[in-house]
Design a protein around this nucleic acid. Sequence first.
DNA 1: TTCCCTCGCGCG
DNA 2: AAAGCGCGCGAGGGAA
Length: 647
Amino acid sequence: MQQWTTGLPDTEFYGAGTKGLEAVVKEVLDTPEVAIDTETTGLVNWKDIPLYFSLAWGHRRMTLNVSALPYFDEAFKDPSKRWIMANAKYDTHILANAGHNIAGSLVDVQVMHSLLYEDHPHNLKYMNFHLFGWKWADFQDTFGKISSTQSPQQMIERAERENFTLLCEYAANDAWGTWQSYLELKRQLQGAMTHSLFSGAPLRIKTLWDLFDAIETPYTKVLWKMERRGVLLNVPYLEQIKPAAEMEIENLNRQICKLAGRADFNPNSVAQMRDYFLEQLKLRPQKMTKGGKSGVKQASIDSTFLEYHAAEVPMAKLLLEHRSVSKLYGTFIVGIGERLDPNGRIHSTLNQDVARTGRLSSKDPNVQQIPKPENDKWNIRNAFIASPGMDMIVGDYEQLEMRLLAAASLEPKMVDVINKGWDIHMGNAAMMYGVDYDDVKAAKKVDKQVKEGNLPQSAMTPRVAQLLGYRSDAKQLGFALIYGQGARATAATLGCSIIEAEEKIETFEAAYPGALAFKKEAIAETEETGYAFTILGRRRNVQEIASANKGLRKRGERIAVNTQIQGSAADVVKLAQILIDASNLEYHFGCEPLLAVHDELAYESPKSTSAEALREIKDWMEHPFPHDLAVELGVDIKRGATWGQAK
DNA sequence: TTCCCTCGCGCG
DNA sequence: AAAGCGCGCGAGGGAA
């Protein structure tokens, strides 16, 4: 593995007291854009600290001991400075953990790369190879594998003693590679023309560089603040749930083993379950698994299969219950409890460069997959709480994707349904089946009251049931449109025959011809340009759409439609977050961001100001553009002590 | 031990 | 031939 290449500027080294450090500090102060990277004690964003750091700009590259860090505080405090980094939020945390807060911009080359090459990896090593053909060693190639017995800190300390030159070269390479990637990617982004999915673009974005500079760069800072603050967990609440869940799992295990007649029966083993249901009970498989890389397809023992047999096969029912409880326990109760900082907060990493549509992803832990209360008997969302003296404010876009479909297609009836303030699924049902909106609404109300026991079962007349069926059809068909779902899959989700599903799809499309036309145009444009574009001009290459393989081509069409809608929804939420940040609620109200779950944003604010903060947040969420779209963006927003209560 | 893959499943 | 979009996590099981 090549460690460094010839023709690079010499690597300089500085620590506190090294001759020439003052001159370097002065030059960094006068340089508007500087690449920086850190070598750290570990990989935990709220805990680990820098041991070395490296800088690069112009024709300079250097490694510095952490002792030199304080000399750069004036530069860090400069709000106009642009710090070029790979995985910027991480290094910014590491510096902050050592008491050095960056006031300038966080310019992330990984995010730059993701705007151009969304189907590639974006780590620095890959990028340097992809952009320049460099094959530089990464950390583990250079210093050895990180393991339970060898921390990054120990490896760096050994390198200090045994091969200091290598350490300096390695660190400087990272800053240099970041700097060079920045220059190249900036050039490429500036040359990449783009346009908005919407005619009469709501913001002036001509190139991908505009998108990066105006949206993604400030967004990195917003996300950093969220990660930094983290969210407070009610630890005693989780501790209280834990033994209850453990007991429940043990009970289920006992029952399952008894039913199987074996003590070593493991409900977590799909292989054992397959054997039991297929070989022992001789049940027929419902469907096969995907098979992955190896292509080995096996009978699927998933919830579809288990639910199909739940009525007559006791084991199927028990296993469903076991899976549900053990998922809650393992992933959400134990998994989240392991990631607390000393203050009882968790700091999920919000990834800006993963999702091909421009959505965020969340990991360690993934706060975007915390169960909904209706699927969670312990209501784990109530373990996410506001800080003492504060309220949690949770704002939810209502049917954002359907609204954007309406705004993009300008389908008059759909626009009308939305701007009348109707429930979209009910409105769609009324339009689809030519019934009165108020009748659908009344049916939904009857349904609710019957479920709550305020009305007798007899209130559920055939007509009410029919209207409810219309609404649930309309809801599912709305999703089907956005996802490009075909008749077969629609039939499965609606629980009807394929013929019936085809008829329903036709009814929906006939009610909204503009929506169908939008879908066709979206596909045609992607066929023509190779890309799907979002409202802010983010683009996604959809190679599949030109495939000779019909299946792949159809997939390309689904991606083309869905990316425009899902990606535009992501743009809207992103823009709202940036505007809320820029309006400085932190200063005015002490209000700060906590969570972002696709179309849902959570903040916390002192109780005395939370009502005002809520109004401000709602306003920005509903009006993120200089001029409003053709439809209103409805946001449901509430305050409460916990995530669950504020919903 | 650690790594990788598969499966199943949580969320929008 | 079949075909719903976008993610991340935990467990099992086999390989390194």
